[in-house]
C-alpha cells in the first residue's frame, strides 16, 4: 500500500516537475510568474491530437509536434507580448497580467476550436501493468517517468554546463551587466521561452497520454507553480524537488487522511514554507515572490 502510493505520488510529481521548471526558468530571468505556462502544455497536447488525428502522423512524430507546438506558442508569446511590455519599461506586474489574459484567451480559444469534449490519442497506449511486490506499476507511468527524468537531466546539464546555460545564469544574476559584457539578452530570453515551452509540451503530451486532453487541462499549472515556489522560485533543481515533494504529499494526504483535504495540505505547506523559509527550499531570490 505504502509503496503503491509512493509510486503514484512520484508519477504525479513528474508532471508537476516538467511544468515547475518552466515557471522557474522564466522567473529567474524576468522576475514574473508566467501564468499562461500551463496553457502551453494544453496547446502541446492539442497539437499532438491534431497531428495524430488530422494529419494521421505516427505517434512519435505527433508527440514531437506537440512539444514543438508548446515551444512555438511560448516563443510567440514572448516575442509579441512580453518583449513589448518589457521594452515599454512597464512594471513586472504588467507581464503577469498579460500572462493571465493570454491564459484565458488560449483556454477559450481551444474551447471554441476543439469544444469542451475530452479527447484521447488514437493509439493503443500500453495500459499493461507490472506487479512489483504488492504494487501495480503502469508501463505508461514508467515510460513517462523515464522520459521526464531524461528531459530534466538534459535541462540541468544545459543550464550548468553549456555556454547557453552560462548566459542564462548571467542574465538571471544581473541582466544589465550581462548585456554590457556582450550577452544577447533578448535572444537568450527567447531561447528560454522556447525551452520552457517545449518542457510544457512534453508535460502536455504525457498528461494527455495518461489522462485526457481537454481545454482546462492547463489548470494543473497552478500546482506546478506551487511546487516551484516550494522549491524556491528561480531554481531549477528546487522546482524538481518541490514538484516531487508536492506530488507525494498530495498522494499521501489523499490516501491516509482525506481526498477532500488534499489541496488544503498543499496550500498549508506553501504558507508554512513561505513563513519559515521565504526563499523556498533552494531559493536565491527572496523579494517579489509570485
Amino acid at each position: 500500500m505504502f509503496f503503491q502510493q509512493l509510486i503514484t505520488g512520484i508519477s504525479v510529481g513528474g508532471i508537476y516537475a516538467l511544468l515547475a521548471t518552466g515557471y522557474s526558468l522564466i522567473y529567474s530571468l524576468l522576475d514574473f510568474s508566467n501564468w499562461s505556462h500551463g496553457e502551453f502544455a494544453m496547446i502541446g497536447a492539442y497539437t499532438a491530437i491534431v497531428f495524430s488525428t488530422v494529419v494521421k502522423a505516427p505517434f512519435a512524430l505527433a508527440a514531437l509536434a506537440g512539444v514543438a507546438g508548446g515551444a512555438l506558442v511560448s516563443f510567440l508569446c514572448e516575442r509579441f507580448a512580453y518583449r513589448r511590455i518589457r521594452r515599454n519599461g512597464a512594471p513586472n506586474m504588467f507581464l503577469m497580467i498579460a500572462a493571465m489574459g493570454l491564459s484565458n484567451v488560449f483556454q477559450q480559444a481551444s474551447n471554441l476550436i476543439f469544444t469542451g469534449q475530452y479527447r484521447s490519442y488514437p493509439f493503443q497506449l500500453p495500459v499493461s501493468t507490472v506487479k512489483v511486490g504488492s504494487a501495480y506499476i503502469g508501463v505508461l507511468d514508467v515510460v513517462s517517468l523515464l522520459i521526464t527524468a531524461v528531459v530534466l537531466m538534459a535541462l540541468i546539464y544545459m543550464i550548468n554546463k553549456t555556454q547557453f546555460g552560462l548566459n542564462v545564469r548571467a542574465i538571471a544574476n544581473n541582466a544589465g551587466a550581462a548585456k554590457v559584457l556582450g550577452i544577447k539578452v533578448d535572444s537568450n530570453i527567447a531561447k528560454v521561452f522556447l525551452l520552457a515551452g517545449s518542457l510544457a509540451g512534453v508535460a502536455g503530451v504525457l498528461y494527455g497520454m495518461k489522462y485526457n486532453v481537454f481545454p482546462t487541462m492547463g489548470n494543473v499549472g497552478l500546482k506546478a507553480f506551487i511546487a516551484s515556489v516550494i522549491g524556491g522560485l528561480g531554481s531549477v533543481p528546487g522546482a524538481i524537488v518541490g514538484a516531487m515533494l508536492l506530488g507525494v504529499l498530495e498522494t499521501f494526504v489523499s490516501a491516509y487522511i482525506s481526498s477532500s483535504l488534499r489541496d488544503f495540505f498543499s496550500f498549508a505547506l506553501l504558507i508554512v514554507l513561505l513563513l519559515v523559509k521565504p526563499s523556498g527550499l533552494f531559493g536565491v531570490d527572496v523579494q517579489d515572490k509570485a
Binding site: 500500500m1 503503491q4 503514484t8 495518461k210 489522462y211 485526457n212 489523499s254 490516501a255 481526498s259
Partner: peptide, 9 residues
Amino acid sequence: VDFRTQLAN
C-alpha cells in the same frame, strides 16, 4: 484526473 490513490485504498 488521477484516482489511483483512492483506488489503492
